[in-house]
Design a protein around this nucleic acid. Structure first.
Length: 109
DNA sequence: GCTTTGACTGCGG
DNA sequence: ACCGCAGCCAAAG
């Protein structure tokens, strides 16, 4: 109740990302919205980029509003590999079909 | 407590 | 549809 460690923006983001099911995607903006700060999409990416090394959070299931991977270099291919491993198909446009893979909280949470 | 930093987003051209 | 720019705001220094 009075413990702020459970009420911070970052804690909410971690909780939300942890709820994204295998084989599904969501966007930075959507996570921000669910966390109660619809304009803090950048912050979501910032938090995911600073995750501790042993984190179990499925950070790879968060992409940008176009359904594209926002990382670059080796990180890009790492995220791509994990998503493909979960059965997600990358379109020729270099994006994932959000209409098909987008996770919605009511869909299972 | 002010300044800098971004794994973003929306809008206009 | 693609590209560039300005706004956004929680965290870290």
């Amino acid at each position: 109740m009075s413990d702020p460690s459970q009420d911070t923006f970052s804690q909410r983001v971690y909780h939300i990302v942890a709820a994204i099911p295998y084989g599904r995607l969501t966007t930075y903006g959507e996570v921000a919205r669910l966390a109660g700060a619809p304009r803090a999409a950048r912050q979501v990416g910032g938090l995911l980029s600073h995750l501790p090394e042993g984190s179990k959070l499925p950070w790879h299931r968060v992409v940008n509003r176009h359904g594209a991977i926002s990382l670059s270099g080796e990180d890009f291919y790492r995220q791509l590999s994990v998503l493909q491993g979960e059965g997600l198909l990358l379109q020729d446009s270099g994006r994932f079909d959000l209409a098909r893979y987008r996770w919605r909280p009511e869909d299972g949470g």
